[in-house]
């Protein structure tokens, strides 16, 4: 019985340790209409998004604040659509080990409001 509990505990611990960093797949079509998949760990993806938020937010927010203080610009929402260009290297493609780095451009929208 003890062994059974131990086995079950180990199995659970094993799966939990994996669950901490999930795989988020990046997906899309290339210029020829062929499907592409790039698996990436969620922690790595979070780091990249965080970097973008800091960079874009850091650049954009002061600009909006400065424009907004000028009475000529009376707007209440600022939408920013952006592609994040990233390069992924050899051996990470699901279907074939492509030799060259691949450009990935996920599209996001950021909404800034008053």
């Amino acid at each position: 019985m003890k062994k059974l509990i131990l086995t079950a505990t180990l199995l659970m611990a094993f799966s939990t340790s994996f669950a901490a960093d999930y795989l988020v797949n990046l997906i899309g079509l290339d210029e020829n209409g062929k499907e592409l998949n790039i698996p990436i760990k969620s922690k790595k993806w979070k780091k990249r998004m965080s970097k973008v938020f800091k960079r874009v937010g850091g650049d954009v927010l002061p600009q909006i604040r400065s424009y907004s203080s000028n009475e000529k610009f009376a707007f209440s929402q600022f939408d920013l659509g952006l592609y994040i260009t990233m390069k992924f290297g050899i051996g990470i493609f699901e279907e074939s080990p492509v030799k060259l780095a691949m450009k990935v451009e996920p599209y996001f929208k950021l909404f800034f409001k008053k």
């Binding site: 797949n25 997906i27 899309g28 079509l29 290339d30 592409l36 998949n37 996920p106």
Partner: peptide, 9 residues
Amino acid sequence: NIGILAFGG
């Protein structure tokens, strides 16, 4: 298979 849309599509 599901993913974050990162290229055309």
